[in-house]
């Protein structure tokens, strides 16, 4: 078994214009995802918008905002376990990401 991080990227402007009904539908989709893949999911969180982000550079400079400005920002993640990339992709395909998509990254394991 290997571990993969599913990074959920999405357009934050679309999130801002979402209605309560959109939000409820998204929550229901995440609940369905968690129910379907429960045993494989090791953890996961949703993040506040990049407007709330603070970045600290290696020289100690502190700035307001995300580390890199991108249209489709990281909005949340799941940590999952899977036998291989095909299994991880099968899980990631079910992950709700209405205004963007997901990225699957293997976790570096230290033995």
């Amino acid at each position: 078994m290997a571990r993969y991080l599913i990074l959920i990227h999405g357009d934050e402007q679309a999130d801002e214009s979402a209605t309560q009904a959109d939000f409820d539908a998204l929550m229901a989709a995440h609940n369905a995802f968690s129910a379907k893949h429960g045993p494989a999911i090791l953890g996961g969180e949703a993040l506040q918008s990049t407007k709330t982000a603070t970045s600290i550079r290696s020289d100690g400079t502190i700035t307001d905002g995300p580390f890199a400005e991108v249209k489709e920002a990281l909005g949340g993640y799941y940590l999952v376990q899977a036998a291989d990339l095909d299994e991880a992709i099968a899980i990631a395909k079910d992950c709700p990401a209405p205004n963007g998509g997901v990225e699957v990254r293997p976790i570096m394991e230290f033995e």
């Binding site: 290997a2 036998a83 291989d84 990339l85 095909d86 991880a88 099968a90 699957v104 293997p106």
Partner: peptide, 14 residues
């Protein structure tokens, strides 16, 4: 090797 792309014939669905 690192992302564990399997050495396998895909499932019927894929």
């Amino acid at each position: 090797a690192t992302a564990r792309i399997p050495y396998r014939v895909p499932s019927a669905a894929d």
